[in-house]
């Protein structure tokens, strides 16, 4: 069974149609890159999959593990195994990073009928994941994302992903605002999580992220639709030619 199956998705924001008949199938273990010009609807797609309020599905279906997502709350989608690496992670003063992580992990465990993770086991796992990503301990003691640099924020997103073990990792412009070293660390973190059952939806404007996270499929999203799909060589072609062809084609 496909992990994620999107058929003829139409969606709007504030009555403005953004996605106009998008179809996409992601099987377990696959890495799909979604590329496209600014304003094409890439973030809208990730928001729709994760259930952000204000994004309205008007037509089509989105299924995750065979389950229709449209009736599920954002937290239910997360517990089912969807994780979005935010392009701009939200700073939340007053919520400690560690407290937040444990709350999120336990919410997921509870939904699966598992008991709460004991404090020692949690810390052991957290320490291991933190170390792998080169995250300083001090960061864990800070409020969630507050005062984190761009690179730290992305690493913190990957750390959450490592702890929550999703089946679908959606990366929205993970490379934005990162220098090459920070990008490599974050991408290595993602690669470490790849497995035959775990899939990646890698949304990006530029090809350079795909040097690190190698896609099985590349799709071009323009004007709310996937206008072309191919292998990873398509990304290089886009890098050279830009999106001009597709934008005019879609218009």
């Amino acid at each position: 069974m496909a992990l994620l199956e999107i058929i003829n998705l139409h969606a709007q924001v504030e009555d403005k149609p953004i996605l106009k008949g998008l179809s996409l199938t992601v099987n377990p273990g696959e890495v799909h890159a979604i590329m496209g010009p600014n304003g094409a609807g890439k973030s809208t797609l990730s928001n729709l999959i994760t259930g952000r309020p204000g994004y309205e599905q008007t037509e089509g279906t989105v299924r995750f593990k065979g389950q229709d997502l449209s009736a599920m709350a954002p937290e239910e989608r997360a517990r089912a195994g969807i994780f979005l690496c935010f392009q701009y992670p939200v700073e939340i003063p007053g919520v400690g990073f560690t407290t937040f992580l444990r709350t999120a992990l336990n919410a997921r465990r509870k939904a699966r009928g598992e008991s709460e993770i004991d404090a020692a086991a949690f810390l052991t796992r957290l320490k291991a994941a933190t170390k792998a990503l080169g995250i300083p301990d001090a960061m864990l003691k800070r409020p969630l994302n507050v005062g984190f640099s761009g690179g730290e924020k992305k690493r913190a997103e990957v750390l959450q992903m490592a702890m929550l073990e999703p089946d679908l990792m959606i990366l929205d412009e993970m490379d934005s605002g990162l220098d090459i070293d920070a990008l490599r660390i974050a991408a290595e973190g993602v690669n470490a999580l790849r497995s035959p059952t775990r899939s990646v939806l890698c949304i990006t404007h530029y090809q350079r992220l795909l040097d690190y996270i190698e896609p099985d499929f590349v799709h071009v999203l323009a004007d709310g639709r996937i206008v072309r799909s191919g292998g990873k060589e398509l990304a290089r072609e886009l890098e050279e030619k830009g999106y001009a062809d597709f934008v005019s084609q879609a218009a």
């Binding site: 259930g51 954002p74 937290e75 997360a78 939340i92 007053g94 919520v95 999120a104 919410a107 959450q160």
Partner: peptide
């Protein structure tokens, strides 16, 4: 903050708990 609320929910935290966390914060 609706953004903060969605962020917490997107990590699997139910809305009531997320609101409580934000109030405490």
């Amino acid at each position: 903050d609706a953004e903060a609320l969605f962020y917490l929910q997107s990590r699997g935290i139910d809305e009531e708990t997320a609101r409580a966390l934000l109030v405490e914060a």
